[in-house]
Design a protein around this nucleic acid. Structure first.
Lengths: 203, 203, 203, 203
DNA sequence: CATGAATGAGCGTTCATTCAT
DNA sequence: GATGAATGAACGCTCATTCAT
């Protein structure tokens, strides 16, 4: 009703509000469900939990994969952005790095669909997503190298891959051994320290 | 029938040579396909590629899962056994460990279904498979500790988890960056060395 | 959405008229096919004959058995209800009884699936269906006994069982000797008359 | 060995012995299984329980239905023959009739496949089986009519159909109400008595 | 535009029947 | 002949996607 009052001027916009609302509802629900169940979810469940019809989903996202990609991208970006800020705010380069891993592994690594997709993303450069994360890591990497805290030769890709790798560990130890990944993280980080001067193998 | 029984050596009339051949063909093809596509494959595709009818598969393996389990178990065992021998034969405890990882990651880690199953196995200890692997790693771990080459506090589970973790890395870098996991392996192994005396976090 | 809610009368947006039509088409076709072929029909055939896709059937009836049960229940109830009315309307207790059998055997006894189910229902009292019928028969039985028309000792179960029994006769004489069951019915009914005072054997 | 001694003369017959043995084993087992489970049995189960290969079954009986028909025919005939003798031996025509029903319903009516097939047989006169039974009943019927014990107009077909009808009752009350069919039998037989002079409806 | 009913390819599985050994 | 391995049509069911309302 309130929306209808402006009829004359906003005839076109009014429906958009709903559309946007819907789109967001869908994405929010999808985010939840994708995190819980991975990409194997039934589209119907997303529709049901979002309170919309399936057609609405398909209007906004022609293929299920489009929805998945969009949602993952958004969530990933959101998270990457907060990670970026944390990285900038940190004063100690090394602490920045370790905090980053801690946060990443406590947070998004539990997201089933993101982890599923990390693999895809990695091998299919057309798919964006890890790219933003790479930027964050690039900074962390550069700062740590600048402070000579990071082992010579360690690249952004190394750090990124380590993250994904530990992410998988989180996935399947989350239920039975909730903190075990932390040990692996420590081990890996110790292996990344500047103390180690032995060159890493070429790819 | 009576005639055949005199033989004494072969209770079963004729060796169903072709049946054995078929069973093996099925398992071999299944191994291939499971390695490529994971457990989601259509049984029909295995049948097609094995050159047999669907019914033949179901004769040998009443449920798809039976086929999967059997194949995975076979492949895993085969590989675990060779890993065990290599581990025993190695003179240097540290080399034994690194070679083991090298071999594991060059080999079975490319197998999608095995990797799928590793995750499951981890959280469901009833499922066998990783158990054999754990035994091998236990030995490697013990020897390395005995020689004081391994960081204090490092457990078999740490090493096992590292393996699975790097296995996933192999999975999704195999196509685009075939040797990249090797760098991570080096980093992790360096983090495992006895030089590091800092205690690892409790689980 | 908000606009639709004002209506107050129809919470559901649009009546899915065609959906109802489809559901009914499915049930009608299913009734036909189940009557003809019993519960062994291929769901695809029902779909084909109803002019819908298979999925449509499964939308309305999650399992084949749900469809079967629903259809049988509907048909059975419909018929049982009309039988009940006829039984009440009849003035003569004996005529009520004979008409009831006539109608039952001319009608639902040709339904293969119902007859299949009668057998099951008999041995599994959890399954509903015969229950309604039993109620009708109970009344008929009571009235006939009250009028001393029915042989002493005859129970509702006797009458019910006779019905099912003659139902089977209808099943397999329907094609070749369409009215033959009628003779058996007469014979049985005569055996049920109060003239016969010889006690019936205990179960 | 004993069979082989006559090699010269019976070269052709020796294998037949086995074949016959097999054929009989198959039929015996099939009889059992068909009685227990009806015609829906898996051919494999018959083969297994008969200790022969499936090919052997299909050599003797090109189609499953051939086996079924043959077995049922044999069992039916066997039983019909014993019924015939009992019928002849009986001195009282009425007792002959009632004993016949008693025996039939205690005996073969529990045979699932026979009962399944009775329906088919009835409507498909090409299928033999009931024919022999009809002959027996014809005699019983004639004797009872001659003694004026049987209601005028009652035909062999009436009696035959009554038998099949009560047979079905036995089928589904056997587990839960083992003797209930007996009551129906009494009722029907009383309806068949010569006391009833009312004409039966034409078919 | 939103809805959710409809579609149908595809999956795991069974079993009568055939055929190489 | 006998064997039982192989075949494949057919079944119940799921779910991404389309489309009439």
């Amino acid at each position: 009703m309130a929306a209808a009052e402006q009829e004359g001027t906003t005839r076109r916009r009014a429906p958009r509000v709903d559309a946007v609302r819907n789109r967001e509802a869908i994405m929010d629900v999808a985010a939840e469900v994708l995190a819980e169940q991975g990409t194997a979810v039934d589209v119907r469940e997303i529709a049901r939990r979002a309170g919309v019809g399936m057609g609405t989903i398909y209007r906004h996202f022609p293929k299920k994969e489009d929805l998945v990609r969009t949602v993952l991208h958004r969530d990933f970006s959101k998270w990457a952005e907060s990670a970026r800020r944390a990285a900038i705010d940190a004063e100690e380069p090394w602490a920045a790095l370790t905090d980053f891993y801690q946060q990443a592994l406590t947070g998004y690594a539990r997201h089933r669909a993101i982890m599923e997709n990390s693999a895809l993303t990695w091998s299919d450069p057309d798919l964006e997503g890890l790219e933003q994360l790479r930027l964050v890591i690039e900074q962390l990497c550069a700062r740590a190298h600048a402070a000579e805290l990071l082992r010579p030769g360690v690249t952004t890709d190394d750090l990124l891959l380590l993250l994904v790798s530990l992410g998988h560990v989180v996935q399947f130890t989350d239920q039975c051994r909730p903190q075990m990944w932390n040990r692996l993280l420590h081990i890996s980080l110790d292996g990344l320290r500047a103390d180690h001067r032995a060159p890493l193998p070429a790819e």
